[in-house]
Computed example of a mutant assay.
Amino acid sequence: MALRVTFVAAAGSSSALAERFEDARPLDRAGWNEVQQVAHELLPLAAADLRYCSPAPRSRATGDGLGYAPLVQLALRDCDMGRWRGLTLGEAMAREPQAVDAWLADPCSAPYGGESLPDFIGRVGGWLDTRPVEDGCRVVAVAEPSVIRAALVYVLKAPPATYWSIDVRSLSTITVAGRAGRWNLRLEGAGAQPTRA
């Protein structure tokens, strides 16, 4: 039995505003415009058997804007960044340069007092592994790019440092197929014939 999960990256905020750790800002006008521009392409995912989103305001608004009416999943929340919550990387670096350097050098560290990267990856992977499995079941999950990066590291069974090498752009999609402990990354394009997982 296999499950097919398509992750949709939440729409971004205005490029004039730097990305923040555990960003709790709502979707702004630029984000809404992004959603409207791609809605026709992503609307078919609303036919998924199960539709989820992270609790982040941008993820919830993106899912609603795409017509998914998703169910919020706490396990899909962003990494707990402790005292760096709401800061940009530059702001954290200005306040605690050695702590930021240590964190970037060792993904197992959590000098900010929150969740370590391996714990974050494990939490997102645990959510994936506990999805109800019915052969051919399709799931869509709207989440912050960081959550999707964590899911990909988990699926690929890659070292935690791989997290820093994955670029997830707003409103991009990625599909994984399989079941608990046995996932495959599935790339589909215009020329690919979609198949049931």
Results as ranks from 00 to 15, higher is better:
N33Q: 13
D28T: 06
V8C: 04
R25T: 05
R29L: 15
L45T: 01
A39W: 09
A24E: 15
G12I: 15
F7Q: 01
A30G: 10
L27C: 00
A24L: 13
A47H: 15
D23E: 03
D28K: 05
L45W: 04
A16R: 15
S54K: 01
A9C: 08
A47Q: 12
E41V: 13
A9R: 08
E19P: 12
Y52R: 03
R58P: 03
A18H: 10
E22C: 09
D23L: 04
A48S: 10
R29T: 07
L45K: 02
L17Y: 14
A46V: 02
D23I: 03
Q36E: 13
P57L: 02
A11Q: 06
A47M: 13
V35E: 01
A48F: 06
A48R: 04
T6M: 08
F7V: 00
E19D: 14
A11E: 06
S14N: 11
R29N: 13
R58H: 01
E41G: 12
C53F: 06
A47Y: 12
R20I: 04
A39F: 13
C53T: 15
R29S: 10
R51H: 02
L43W: 14
R20A: 06
A10N: 08
A24S: 13
C53R: 05
A24R: 15
A46Y: 00
P57R: 03
E22D: 09
Q36N: 07
H40Q: 08
V35R: 01
D23Y: 00
A47V: 12
A18E: 10
V35N: 00
